[in-house]
């Protein structure tokens, strides 16, 4: 057993040293020979988060198909803005990729100054990956089971969000604005603390990603109220969607593999083929199920259409309901 581990680490060392320097000064001719060396996948979030786990779950099988190491590199900051900037500046040769969060493309621009916003159309999309649904959960002590309960309570409520300018904030703001509930947003730093606040009764409700809330919902520690999905997610069949309850609040997190603008078509196709192989792996499918992720393995053009449409829809909605995502309201 031990020798296997040692063997693996020695192999890693050799593979890494064989890949040579990482300064990208020798322009390699891309094409049939791609890849000649390791591929880096940037992740704009810290290790251990949903996006990071997805990247790592994909890197392993993709590297088996490409026969070169695929290394995950965390560059956290500005909701992925730091990594996106690095990607934009990287050589467009397919050796630098990024797992791009949909919220960075279609929600963050609504919350930050124009010069800080990242435009997804300035990148090449290799492939869509998966979608993550948001669910509104309540502390059982509040007695809330449906949106109607919240409205009928006729009292000001507090809701936890996973941060300013996130889907968690957008979906709740939309719901409460339409339901005319006097609600105060309390931003937390990510899904786990927001959920903890709802569990401990610090806030009345919270919207978190399904994968994060699933185990607490199953244990009955929080009550699911609505999901913000297009249709009832297979993982939570008994909870209505916001749409069914009569509110326009379709908000999802979505993820895609993205390369710098101008990467050669053949290289992108080769990468897409490798990720398709990874998507087909049973282990990866199990991971999706475990994490309550819905596959969205579409091609680049379709994904851009989806994301651009989401951005325009959200822009229209927040104008209609006079929501300020920057938190200044």
């Amino acid at each position: 057993m031990r020798s296997r581990v040692l063997g693996a680490s020695v192999a890693t060392v050799l593979a890494l040293s064989a890949c040579g320097g990482n300064l990208d000064d020798s322009a390699s001719d891309a094409g049939s020979t791609f890849p000649e060396r390791a591929v880096r996948v940037l992740v704009g979030q810290d290790a251990g988060g949903s996006t990071d786990l997805i990247a790592r779950a994909l890197a392993e099988p993709a590297s088996a198909d490409l026969k070169k190491p695929v290394t995950v590199l965390n560059k956290a900051g500005a909701n992925g803005g730091v990594a996106a900037k690095e990607l934009a500046g990287a050589e467009a040769d397919g050796y630098t990729l990024m797992v791009f969060n949909g919220s960075l493309a279609y929600i963050t621009p609504l919350a930050v100054a124009a010069d800080e916003a990242v435009d997804i159309n300035g990148f090449e999309v290799v492939t869509g990956v998966s979608q993550d649904d948001y669910v509104l959960v309540a502390n059982p002590k509040t007695g809330f089971k449906t949106v109607k309960d919240i409205v009928d309570a006729k009292r000001p409520i507090t809701f936890a969000t996973t941060g300013v300018g996130t889907g968690s904030q957008l979906c709740q703001e939309l719901l409460f604005a339409q339901a005319s509930v006097d609600a105060t947003a309390v931003p937390f730093n990510g899904g786990a603390p927001a959920l903890t606040a709802a569990l401990g009764g610090q806030v009345d409700v919270a919207a978190v990603q399904l994968g994060e809330g699933q185990s607490q919902i199953k244990a009955g520690k929080v009550t699911p109220i609505v999901t913000f999905a297009a249709e009832r997610p297979a993982y939570l069949p008994d909870t209505p969607t916001a749409q069914e309850s009569g509110y326009t609040a379709l908000v999802q997190q979505s993820r895609a593999i993205v390369a710098p603008k101008g990467a050669p078509r053949e290289t992108l196709d080769r990468l897409r083929a490798a990720f398709q192989k990874a998507f087909a792996e049973q282990k990866y499918k199990d991971f999706n199920a475990q994490r309550s992720l819905t596959p969205n393995e579409v091609d680049g053009a379709t994904l851009l259409r989806q994301w651009n449409a989401s951005r325009d829809t959200y822009r229209g909605l927040i104008e209609k309901y006079k929501i300020d995502l920057s938190g200044k309201s």
Partner: peptide, 21 residues
Amino acid sequence: NATMAVIFGALLIQGVTPGPQ
């Protein structure tokens, strides 16, 4: 903490969901 978050992720990849149960 951050390390527990990564271990949380490792459990998920292993097919175990950490939670009250």
